[in-house]
Amino acid sequence: MSSVLYDVPGPRAMARNRVLGVLTVIVIAVIVGYFVWRLIDTGQFTAEKWSAFTYANVWLNIGAATLATLSTFGAAAVGAIVLGFVLAIGRMSDHAWIRVPFTAVVEFLRAVPVLIFMFLLYYGLPVIDVRVSPYWAVVIALVAYNGSVLSEVIRAGVESLPRGQSEAGYALGLRKAGVMRLVLLPQAVRAMMPVIIAQLVVTLKDTALGFIITYPELLFYAKYLGSQPSLDSPIIPSTIVVAVIYIGLCLLLSFIATTVEKRLRRSPGGGAVAAANPPLQQGTDTELIVAQGGEPRGPAR
């Protein structure tokens, strides 16, 4: 028995896969156990290392750093989505004088790493007497990179739709802008929603790069807290706490995205409408009218 994509493994292959799976789990468990043992052996779980988190002021600063992270993520996410739609529509233009420049912009923005964007904005622009705050350097860099990536995601979603979708829109008298706005983009966004959300999760995690240009987000405060000798330099505990916060934010974003995706995929009333319409039948006009419950008519004169 085989599938379209691969042959179903036989008894020997299944036994070999089970052995490989068990060995993989054992290896991972050994690595994690060794890492935890080293943390315990070096005193990273002692009360002195975690004493910093008994101060209310530390948690207030962690809360402020979390809000700083969320503020940059919110602005960058909205800006990246807007820029992604603009670049995607420009790349799909029928006019070469529009399509070619937009394509060049997308390829350039995708090729430059986010950290280099931040360095150019924060350290490079002051050379020409242009000052950019750390907040805007982080936001603009994230918008530029993630917007270019999202543009390709949206474009791929539109081009993956059947040609009949756009042809039906043109048959109804819509122009290309109307077909794109009313027919293609809603379906493309619905189909590409998991990829869009995955890129937004990347955007959230990339806000941590802001600590390099002294933006006071979570990682910046964790580094600052871990370098305090008066608190026994709790760099590992600070990193663990910040990692837990980042994981929680990413899980929350994924939960919201899953909820939105389910609501977008829900088609209210679709089943009832489909059931109410009888299937098209091949035959004469009289047969079709009778099939739909009407009275037969004579031939047209």
Rank of each mutant, 00 (worst) to 15 (best):
V58Y: 00
F45D: 15
S3R: 14
I245F: 06
A75D: 08
F220V: 03
R91Q: 09
V8H: 03
V112Y: 01
N57L: 15
A275V: 10
A222C: 08
I40W: 07
P186C: 11
L184S: 10
A80P: 04
G248I: 09
D232T: 03
C250T: 11
R175W: 06
D94N: 07
V32G: 10
Q292M: 12
T203Q: 04
A144E: 05
W59N: 05
A222I: 02
A77D: 01
K223V: 08
A276Y: 01
R297K: 13
I128M: 02
G298M: 05
D206E: 09
L109F: 10
A198K: 04
R163S: 15
K223S: 12
R91I: 02
L182W: 02
M118T: 08
G210A: 02
V244P: 08
A198R: 02
V260F: 15
T69W: 03
I116V: 15
R297F: 00
G270H: 04
D129F: 10
Q199H: 11
D41A: 13
V260W: 12
Y224G: 06
L252P: 01
E159K: 12
S160I: 06
F117R: 04
T203C: 08
P134L: 10
R18N: 08
F220I: 05
H95T: 12
L204A: 09
I62H: 00
I89C: 10
L5R: 11
L231V: 02
L264K: 04
T239F: 04
M192S: 14
T54R: 07
P234I: 01
G90H: 03
V112N: 06
I89T: 06
E167V: 10
Q165N: 10
R301E: 15
T207A: 05
M193N: 05
S51H: 05
T24A: 07
A276H: 04
W50H: 11
G169N: 09
T103C: 10
Q281K: 10
